[in-house]
Each structure stands twice: as structure tokens, then as C-alpha cells.
Design a protein around this nucleic acid. Sequence first.
DNA 1: AAAAGAATTATCATATTATGATAATTAGTA
DNA 2: TACTAATTATCATAATATGATAATTCTTTT
Lengths: 260, 260
Amino acid sequence: MSGFQRYKKILDLFSEERSFWTVLEISKSLKTPSSTIYRIVREMVTAEFLESASGSYFRLGPAFIKFNRIINFSDPLVRAGQPFLKKLANENPITSVNVLARLYGNNVMCVADYKSPTFKKNTSYQRGKLMPLIYGATSRAIIMQITGKRLENLINLENFKSDEDKTNFLKELKNDRKKGYCFTEGQVDKGLIGFAVSISNKKLGIVASLSSIFNLDDFLLEHEPIIYANLTTYGLLVEKYINEIFDDIQKYHHETNSMR
Amino acid sequence: MSGFQRYKKILDLFSEERSFWTVLEISKSLKTPSSTIYRIVREMVTAEFLESASGSYFRLGPAFIKFNRIINFSDPLVRAGQPFLKKLANENPITSVNVLARLYGNNVMCVADYKSPTFKKNTSYQRGKLMPLIYGATSRAIIMQITGKRLENLINLENFKSDEDKTNFLKELKNDRKKGYCFTEGQVDKGLIGFAVSISNKKLGIVASLSSIFNLDDFLLEHEPIIYANLTTYGLLVEKYINEIFDDIQKYHHETNSMR
DNA sequence: AAAAGAATTATCATATTATGATAATTAGTA
DNA sequence: TACTAATTATCATAATATGATAATTCTTTT
């Protein structure tokens, strides 16, 4: 183990289900002597990436909250898209969850969400949560932007039941790419349906989507055109704002860099 | 520079105001050759603690969103307190911002907040934001739990205008400690007032506070007893739940550790 | 399409740092 | 108080990071 990996491996042990670890547990789990782990953990506590509780337990530290906040207030995708989620919810014909998601490594991650106050069911789409790559409209509108070898690599990581399933998926992907939007039913949460459009920004390396999720029971066919119109309109708006934000950033850097 | 510091120093460059950095900018700023920075940045991109955009810019990576989410869903303080913030807001006699905050290094950090929908003004208390240690009721209810050398060290980091100011502050602290709650006016945001109670859990090393912030203009003297009653009641409830959560965690560890 | 320039990665000898077994200390508990 | 568990210190050795430079790749311009 070397470099940043040394620290990452420890952080990766912490999960929602298991958020407290003792040094001995870490040591066993990583098959590394406890004297080494003690030293590393101490470093990370100093840096506030870990925090110690009594009973010799350690948990994730407040640094993550701090940096998360910085991202939240400065990430172009979040900044550009967040304000529209509520509007989208209000203009949708039925109660909805609205989600901004992006490619995150080999997964899709939700980066912002807004649920209508009247939406009762719990959904799998919540900020920070990793989502499966091949299920749900939210993910589809992301993966359909990817082509060639990159797509192949991503797809090969997934466990399709059969080769037929895989071929079907790729066919659907192609279709949706042409249409410019996606629809899926119950792929992530039972009883829910999703609609999504792609969002991207080449300069910023953003591969993302904007989606609305509804209760199947609430949905009528006549809602469809309105839903697509809303998503398309706001999707374009979000892209426009991302561009503007990036331009501002570049301008700022040119100014400050030329000041010396 | 060695160990985790090497990585931390780079991360610490990123802020809300300046969220994009090029390798060259980092290299200049840290007075370290760019070949070294390139290597380190690449490592962090792999670990998803940094992310590259085009134009050779880098920004904070999605790992922070992921770990933040884990904290959000597993931190005993947040888990115990978050659900009460809305209730507190609803039961307060006037529109309010309600905040859970905790000691974070030498600062106070807000870890959860709920604003009444009718509360219009922007406040400085938002999740993840660092707050001054000696201003505002939210911070006061935290620092008043600290005594002895620890308190002295913390206080000495602050710039009091005069020794008199410092003595006064310590006197007020003592008073509030006796009373069991705090009140301040306009110390953090003009036109706002704050009420706070302490929250702590020795086992978990939690030194925190629960507070309600109001518009000075809305406030009448007759509101005061209700506000204190609410804060006290919910403060105790939060502490009770923190305890229960910790007991669950311990039970879980005993079980899984004895399984081998 | 070629060329120039910028960004990024590779190389490698050397300096620095991490490792882990063990001992020493400290904190927690009965 | 004494006992046990947790944490820190020590240190020789193995492993790794560093940074100057060269090589490569990516972008932009003509």
C-alpha cells in the first residue's frame, strides 16, 4: 500500500451501515499491523478526516462536511441545476422527485435532488448516493452519452443475465440517444417511473442528467408531453448556465494569473 | 511535506471562492515542482478526491459528496437531532432558523439546519459552514461546555479587542453555564437574535448545541419562555437519542466481534 | 494537415519517509 | 490501587517520494 491509497483504504471501510471502527478492527480488516494503523489514523484525525470517539472508536471527520459544502456552493453542475429542481417540481403535472445526477467513476451519483412536499414514497435517489449504471432513466440519460470503448468498458463491468439482455440494452440506448430522452418503469424502485434528459459540458467534463420521477399510479398518458417539455426546457437552461459559470471562472483565472 | 499533509495542503487550497485550480497554480502556491504536483494530483483524481475538467483545471471530487452522505446518514448527532429541527421550527412562536452545531477543531460548525419556509433573511448558519467561536448563541452554548486549559487554549486563539473584553466574555460564559442556556443579539448577523442550549455526549466526544435564530423585529418578550422550553425539551430529547444510537452501535460491535 | 506550444507522464538516482516488531507510556476500569 | 486495554515512542531497515529532465500526448493555430 502506498501514497494516497494508504489513506483511502481506511476511509473506504466506513459506510452508512458501519460508521464506527476501532483501530484493531481496521488493522484486522486491512491485514496491517496496528502500530501502523495507529500512526495513519492519528494523521487523519489531525487533518479532521477522521474523528475519535471514546471506546476507541473512530468515525469519519468533519472535513468531509466542509469540503462537501464547498462543492455544493461552487460546483457548476449543482450551482446551475439546483435552483431549477424546485421549479421543475412545481411545473410538473403530478407530484415528483427531481434529480440531478452525474457519472461518478463507474457509477451514477445523484448530486442534487428536490422532492415535492406532497411526494410520499421514499426513493433511492438522494444526494450523494451511488446508483446502478444500467437501471433507471436517470442513469440511462447519462450512459447514453457515452460511446465507443469507454461505453464498452463500462458495460462489461455490469452483470447482464444474458447476452440477449446486453444486446437489448444497447439497442434501447441507441434508440434513446436518437429520441433525446429516456423513460423507464420500476427499474430502480417498484411503483415508480422515471423520465430523463441528458446534460453535458465538454469543457468541464460533465456527463450528467436531469430527471423527474413519479408514482406510476398518478401517471396519465396526457402528462407525458408536459413532462418532456419541462425536462427539455430546463435541461437546456441548466446547460446554458453551466457554460456561463465556466466562462466566469475562466475570466477570473485569466485576470488573477495575469496580475503577476 | 510528508504523509497525509501532502494531500491535505492541496485540498485546502480549494474554497467556495476559488474552486478551480490548475497544476501550475497549485505548484506555485505550494512552492513545489509541478512534476511532483502532477503525480500527487493524479493519485487524488484516481481516488476521486479531485476531478479534472478541461483547460487543465481541477476541482474537488465526488468522494466528498459520498462520504458526506455517509456522515449525514450515520452521525449520531445528525441522526438524533435532524428530525427535531423541523418540529422545533413549527413549535416556535415566531418564524425561525434552527441549527445543530458542534465543535470542529478550533471552530464551530453547523451540521444540520432547518429554516421555516416563511423565514426570509439569509443567515450565516448553513450546514458545513464554519462559525466564529466566540460570537452568537449557537457557539456560546458550545464553548461554555469547555473548561480549564482547553478553554484557555481556544480563547487565546481569538482576537479580543482588549483584556477587558476577554474578561467580560469569560464572565458571561460562567453566567450562561449556570443558567443552562444562552442568548445573543446581532453578534453574527445584524437584526437577528439567537437562543441556544448545550448538547453533549461524553462517550462520543460530542460537544454541540441546539439553537433557534429569530428576526429581532418579530420578537416579543412573552415569546421567551416558550422558546426556552422548546429548546430545553428538544435538547434533552436529542441527547437521549444520541445515547440510544450509541448503545445500538456498541451492541452491534460486540456481536460482530464475538462472532469470530 | 502540419507545426508550435502547452499539458501531462515517464525516468531514475538520491533523499526522505513509512514500516512493523517491540518496548514504554497512558487511559480506562473494577 | 492494581489490572487491562489503548495508544504512543523507538529505531533499523525496506519502501517510497522527490524533482530535474526528457519523452510523450493533447490543443490550438496557421
